[in-house]
Nucleic acid binder design. Structure first.
Lengths: 116, 116
DNA sequence: TATACTTAGTTACATAAAGTAATTAATTAA
DNA sequence: TTAATTAATTACTTTATGTAACTAAGTATA
C-alpha cells in the first residue's frame, strides 16, 4: 500500500504545506523579508527546526537567503515569486480560521461568532 | 521559546491542515462519502494512520462517521459542513500545484507549463 | 585586555509521530 | 471447513520534532 490515485503535483503541494512550520514561516514572511531570529520569535519555532525548514524551503524555491556583508553580517530571508504565490492559500486558511475556529478566551476583541 | 505572535485561530487552522494526510483525506471526501478502505487506497495511507486521522478529524468536527447496520455492516465517513468548508482552501492548493509544481514524467497529458 | 552579548546557526540527546507488517473479530462466500 | 473482506488494532521500526547546550564571528562593556 503506497500508491495513491491523486495527482502527484497536488500531493507534492500538500506535502510542502503539511511540513510542520512551513505555512507559518511563509505567512510570517508575507509582511517583509526577515532575519532568522525575527522569524524564530514570531512563529515560536526552535532554531534547529527553523534552520532545517529554511533549507528545505530554499531547496524548493520558496525562499531566498541573502547575505549582506555589513558588519556584523546580516542574513535575510525572503519569499521568491513561488513562495509569495502561496499568499492566496494562506489568506483562505486565515479566513477559514476566523469563520470556523472558535476564539480562545484570550481573543477578547472578537465580536463575531464562528459557525457550528 | 514557545510563544508566537500569530493569531491562535490561524495557528490552529494551520496545525489541522499540516497534520500529515488530513488535507488529502478531506480532498478525497469532497467527491462523496466513503468507506475506510476506499479512502485508504485512494490516498495511499496506512490503516493505522488513517484510523488515527479519522478519529482526530471526527474530534475536530470535520468528519462524521456513520454506521449502516446492513449485513455486512457498512461504515461510511463523510464531511461535516465544517469539513466541506475547507473546499476553497483545497481548490486553491490544487490550482497552485498546477501553476507552480513541475509535472512529473508520468504526467504526460499536461500541455501547459509551470512558472519558474 | 578580559568578559559578556548577539546572531545564525549546529550538535547531542529525548520524545513524539508515522510507517510496516502481522493480527483480530465479525461476517460472508466457496 | 477454509478463505476472503472490512475496519480496525498491536508490536515494532524509522523518521521527525523538540530541548538545551554549544559554537564562531564579531561587538560592546568594564
Amino acid at each position: 500500500m503506497k500508491q495513491s490515485a491523486l495527482c502527484p503535483r497536488f500531493e507534492k503541494a500538500v506535502s510542502l504545506l503539511s511540513q510542520r512550520w512551513t505555512a507559518l514561516v511563509i505567512y510570517q514572511m508575507l509582511d517583509a523579508p526577515q532575519r532568522f531570529g525575527a522569524i524564530q520569535s514570531a512563529v515560536g519555532v526552535s532554531g534547529k527546526v527553523l534552520s532545517d525548514r529554511l533549507k528545505d524551503m530554499e531547496r524548493e524555491g520558496l525562499v531566498k537567503r541573502d547575505v549582506y556583508p555589513e558588519t556584523p553580517v546580516i542574513i535575510e530571508y525572503s519569499l521568491t515569486d513561488k513562495g509569495r504565490s502561496l499568499e492566496p492559500v494562506l489568506r483562505d486558511i486565515e479566513q477559514w480560521s476566523q469563520d470556523w475556529i472558535p476564539p480562545t478566551t484570550s481573543d477578547e476583541t472578537d465580536l463575531t461568532e464562528t459557525h457550528q
